[in-house]
Every structure is written in C-alpha cells, then in structure tokens.
Write a protein that binds this DNA or RNA. Structure first.
Length: 458
RNA sequence: GCCUCCAUCGUCUAGUGGUCAGGACAUGGGACUUUCAAUCCCAGAACAGGGGUUCAAUUCCCCUUGGAGGUACCA
C-alpha cells in the first residue's frame, strides 16, 4: 500500500502538563479540519510519559477545552502510560537488530560532557550489556548513523535535510522504563496507522531522528507537516503575562468557541479567497494543508475581538437569547428574546451581556453613568421628561412607531431638540447613557413601566 | 557555538517572471443617528538589504541581516 492510498488518520497528541494554550489548540484545529475535509479520522492521544510533569488537572481541562471548542475526536483518548509494554518491546526489537543499545552512564558522568553524549556505551558487547542490566540502571539509546544525511519531506516546507553527524544517540527508553517522546510517538503513529503527522514546528529538528527510527523498524513514515509557532504581539513567546494565552482564558473572557476556532484557523492558513468569517462547515470545506504558511505568526487579540463580534452577530436570535436566559431564568421568553435581538448587534463579548441588559429587567436605582449624566442632564430635564410621560400616556398602541411620534410631538410643541429630550429620558429609564434605540427600549419595557420610571427622579 | 526553519502594509494574509501589489484587523477621516455600538464610504500603510539569473524580478538562486526552533533520561 502506498502512502497516497492510505486512509487519512491524524491525531492531536498533547502532553498533560499544563493548560491548553492557543498554539496547541490550533494544532488540534488543523488536525481536525484536515480529517473532516478529507473524510478521515481524528483521534486523541495523551502523551503522558513524563511522570514528573504529569498533571491530572491539566488532563481534565484539556478534554473539557477540546470539547468546548467543538473538536470532537473520533477515537481515543489513548494513553501512552498504558502502553509501556509495547514501547519496551519496540526498544528490544531495535537492540536485537543492532539499532539501539543499553547505556549505563550515570547522570554525573553525563554532566561532565560538554558537547552532548559521547557514545560511551555504543560499542559495549551486547552479551556484556545484557548481564549488566540485571543489576544496573540503564537507558536505551538509538544508534544514529555517523555519516550521510537524513532527508524528509515536509508538506509545507518541502525537503529538509540534516547531516547525520549532527544527530546524537538519543535516549528512547528512560531509566524509569518509560519511553521518551521520540520512541513513543513513532511507535504509536505506526501502530495507530497515522497517515499525517501535523504538529508544532519545534519538532522539525527531531524529525530526522524519527525518520531514522521508522527506517530502523522497517516501517513506512507518515507525511510530516510542521505548523508555524504563534508568537506574542511584540514577538517572543505567548504567555499569560502578555495577555490571555490559554483556551480557558478566552472562554472566561467571553469568547465564543467558534470565533476562537475561526480566528486561530486563520493564523497561518487562508482559504485562498477573501473569506474570513466562517463557520465550522465552511472552514472544513475550504481547508487544505497546502495553504498553510511556514511563517511564524503573531497573535492579534484585536482581530479576535472583532471576529467574536462577527460570530455573535451570526448567532440566531434564539440562540443568543439562550445566553441571556441564563442570566434571567425567571423572565418571560418573549421579553428575553426581544432584549436579545436589541443587544446582539452591539456587543463583542457575551460577558458584556449582564451589564448591558440589566435595566431591562430591574429598575435602576440611580443614574450610574455619571459622565452621561453631566453631559445630558439639565435643570430642564425633569420638566421635559414629564411632558414626554404625559404624551406617552395617551398612546394606545405602545409600539416603536407611536413612541417616536410622541417624542416628535413634544419636540414640536415645546421647541426642544430631540437630543435634549431623548437622552435625559434614556437616563431616567435605563440609568445609562448608551444602548439600543430609545424607542425600542421603551417598547420593550412597556407603557406602565416606562411612565413609572420617567416620573421617578434620581 | 553548532544545526534547522522562516521573511509582502503595525498585524493576519492574497498574489504573479511583466499587477495601479488585492483583502481583513487596527489607525485616521466621513456618512447615518436620540446615545453607544453596528453598518457603509474614503484615506494613509508592505514586497528586509546586497548580489546574481533574465529583455524583465516582489516572484528563481546565493550572501547578509533579522526572527524562530533544536542542541534533555521534557514534550
């Protein structure tokens, strides 16, 4: 079977040591989009071979965050820690073939070495080594070739060639019998029939070693595709200090999962046309590995914010109303839906919802918006508002059109500009100086409530 | 140090051996307007530098510079 005919199977293979950061999330997204785009399988593998850094909390968050993003996996999660026997056997297999060897060097000795491991144990006779493993601690190292060079083809960068003399005899089985990443990932990617390895580009320089491992086993290599890193706005690593960095952070800030996925998908990839705001189906439809850029990219939260606003506006009114309903479970659906429709076009974060919707459901006790108060409220305002209240009282059909007419009447009869009338009325009714159209607010509140609020004085 | 990768507006990107180098975010201005948004319109803004190859390079090659990654019994 050639690689071209192999069914597409890709994986996201995080190590549960910390929060899922946006770089990892994007790797997951590209794997997911690619699998879905070609009708392949997307599986999840947990690379928990580092017992010191293992963090159970991180694992839980990871699964939760992936689900939140909507990246459901088809298989897994598979845990490497449960497959130790397989890696042990694989290591033995390489030793038998002469591609790997036992190394008994102590950490102290290794520390005295200046330029990496000196291949001290490489030529120990196997029989001797096999005796020593009974009583001594050891690791298993891969025997890298001394001459020649190793090439592989990266799907977005083309051929990458490394002289073998620059590759060291890397440890594949650690002292604690756990495999290193290199062994575990190669063995798993083979047995789990991974067709394409899409991972961060920090792995580029390890890939020749992986290729050598595949060769030593006599296995076919998967396709490799290394994704560019995501950098912080000013350059350098993305970190909490430089703003939000983990998926959880963005969720807490009020971002929509699909807005994050959409934005992240565009960081290093484009559909080839001018589309930017896309739902998951559109992203899947447009996705291809060839259009991924090799260049490192920097994270622009401003654009993410904009993207989030766009996705909020894309939400159906009823879906958006569900968010609002969470805040006011006791309120009537009809009113919640109305308020939601008014608010939807004007916010960037669902977290703004609470503050922006409050006055629709609770009477404001006082004017909370001091700036607007100083700007719009005058000594004349109470008088003007009373005129409005009187006019509103006369309305039979309390809708936007009639409310507007009522205001127009007051303006005309008392020669007041609409601005001087509407803003104080808004303050009286909502307690704040900004929001949806005043007529809409009033209609939503209902005649009785409006008149009550107008006649109170702050 | 050594090895590897990368390089179009401030940012994300499209693009081609001959283009007015296109779009989006951000920025500035305008329109709309009862406010704040949203929306619409307009503007400024880029092919890192130097060598080649070529009739012609942003595009192909080399060097420099800059950035990123690796150089772990971490992934």
């Amino acid at each position: 079977m050639t690689q071209e005919t192999k069914p597409v199977r890709v994986r996201f293979a995080p190590s549960p040591t910390g929060y899922l950061h946006v770089g990892g999330a994007r790797t997951a997204i590209y794997n997911y989009l690619f699998a879905k785009a070609v009708g392949g399988t997307f599986y999840l593998r947990i690379e928990d071979t580092d017992r010191k850094r293992y963090n159970e909390e991180a694992l839980k968050d990871l699964l939760r965050d992936l689900k939140w993003l909507g990246l459901e996996w088809d298989e897994g999660p598979f845990f490497q820690s449960e497959r130790l026997e397989i890696y042990g056997k694989a290591a033995e297999q390489l030793i038998d073939k002469g591609h790997a060897y036992y190394c008994f060097c102590t950490e102290e000795r290794l520390q005295t070495l200046e330029h990496g491991y000196d291949r001290h144990c490489r030529d120990l006779p196997l029989v001797e080594a096999q005796k020593r493993i009974e009583s001594e601690k050891f690791v298993v190292r891969f025997k890298a070739p001394l001459n020649g060079s190793t090439k592989f083809n990266d799907l977005i960068r083309g051929e990458i060639e490394t002289p073998n003399k620059d590759l060291d005899d890397l440890v594949i089985l650690k002292r604690d019998k756990f495999p290193t990443y290199h062994l575990a990932s190669v063995v798993d990617d083979h047995y789990m029939q991974t067709s394409h390895v899409l991972r961060g580009d920090e792995w580029i320089s390890s890939t020749p070693k992986h290729v050598l491992l595949y060769n030593a086993f006599g296995w076919e290599t998967p396709f490799f595709c290394h994704l560019p890193v995501i950098l912080a706005p000013g350059g350098g690593k993305l970190s909490k200090r430089k703003g939000a960095a983990s998926v959880g952070d963005f969720r807490d800030l009020g971002y929509l999962p699909h807005a994050l996925v959409n934005y992240l998908s565009l960081l290093g990839w484009s559909p080839g046309d001018d589309r930017e705001v896309m739902n998951l189906e559109e992203m899947i439809g447009a996705f291809s590995l060839e259009r991924i850029q090799p260049k490192a990219v920097s994270f622009d939260e401003k654009k993410l914010e904009w993207m989030n606003g766009m996705h909020i506006r894309l939400l159906s009114d009823s879906l958006f109303a569900d968010e609002l309903k969470k805040l006011y479970p006791a309120e009537q659906d009809e009113k919640v839906l109305k308020v939601a429709a008014l608010l939807k076009p004007r916010l960037k974060f669902t977290t703004e919802l609470s503050a922006m919707s409050k006055y629709f459901f609770e009477r404001p006790e006082k004017c909370e918006d001091e700036k607007a108060y100083t700007k719009y409220w005058t000594e004349q305002s109470p008088k003007h508002i009373e005129l409005v209240a009187k006019e509103l009282e006369k309305i039979e059909d309390f809708d936007v059109k009639n409310i507007e007419l009522a205001f127009a009447k007051v303006c005309e009869s008392s020669e007041i500009k609409l601005g001087a009338l509407a803003q104080p009325a808004r303050l009286a009714v909502s307690g704040v100086g900004a929001g949806p159209g005043l007529w809409e607010i009033l209609e939503c509140l209902g005649k009785e409530e409006c008149i009550f609020r107008l006649r109170r004085v702050f």
